[in-house]
Nucleic acid binder design. Structure first.
Lengths: 138, 138
DNA sequence: AACGATATGTTATGTTATTACGCTTGCGGC
DNA sequence: GCCGCAAGCGTAATAACATAACATATCGTT
């Protein structure tokens, strides 16, 4: 049976290339960053990348960081899309930490229920400095 | 003494124009939307709008919605910048509801403290359908 | 008046994302 | 087999969002 880090097998060539690029990267990449890295593999147009990204994001294999206009591979291959995900983005090194918090999710649910708002998607992005960078700066 | 909805008097002409436009709008506006509305007032270049927006956002008089690449006037003239602000954006009518939640803020603080992350700025945006639009659709 | 800080106006350019169109591929039903 | 459909792909063009670089102006302070 399946184990931790396996990549779904039913990806198309472009989707695989894009996901591979994201996975190999230390930090978020813009669609155009990805495109540049994949020119050697035959990709030529932004749309090829955007289409692949759409699918990957749909499937929870990648995330879009709205405040960066960039993308990252999902950090946790187990729990795709299982709820609200928050991202902590370090302004110094660019690294992104992904985490889920049930309390926040629950709290949001309460707010929505109260106001009759139907939540479809939530983005939560924290900008700041990660512990490593703070240590280095000290 | 000052009361609820007064506009700060020390804004420059461009800042006033931009804030006025945002305040008059029912929903979020992109920088270019704003520019188009202000051509009659002599504005010609995107930068004039972006510069004004920068200041307004700095001062908490306007907010940037990252997931929309658009801007809104701050809904609450009293409590500018006093903490984490969440936005609920209706995909149907475009209206934006602005709210603060101390529990979420606190929870985020805890997470940050635990991991040694220094938070500088947080964006939280909920996409979905507002009560009004749900009622209409029913 | 001289200075610095802040704001302005303008042109050009850079970056991110989508529209439109046509071709190809895989697959189920007949 | 072959038709028809859905999904994917390739390409060109363009739209939408944002900033760089540079010159000028305005205002408060000394």
């Amino acid at each position: 049976m399946a184990h931790s880090h396996d990549i779904p097998t039913d990806l198309t060539r472009n989707q695989e290339l894009v996901l591979g690029t994201l996975t190999a990267s230390a930090g978020p990449l813009s669609a155009y960053d990805i495109l540049d890295k994949l020119r050697g593999d035959g990709l030529r147009a932004p749309l090829q990348v955007y289409r692949a990204l759409d699918k990957l994001v749909d499937r929870g294999l990648a995330h879009r960081l709205e405040s960066l206009n960039a993308f990252v591979a999902c950090a946790d291959m187990h729990c795709h899309r299982k709820g609200l995900i928050a991202f902590a983005i370090c302004e110094s090194c660019g690294k992104v930490d992904e985490f889920a918090d049930e309390v926040i999710e629950e709290r949001l649910g309460t707010w929505a229920r109260t106001g009759g708002f139907k939540v479809e998607r939530t983005t939560m992005e924290i900008r700041g400095r990660c512990a490593d960078c703070l240590a280095k700066a000290a």
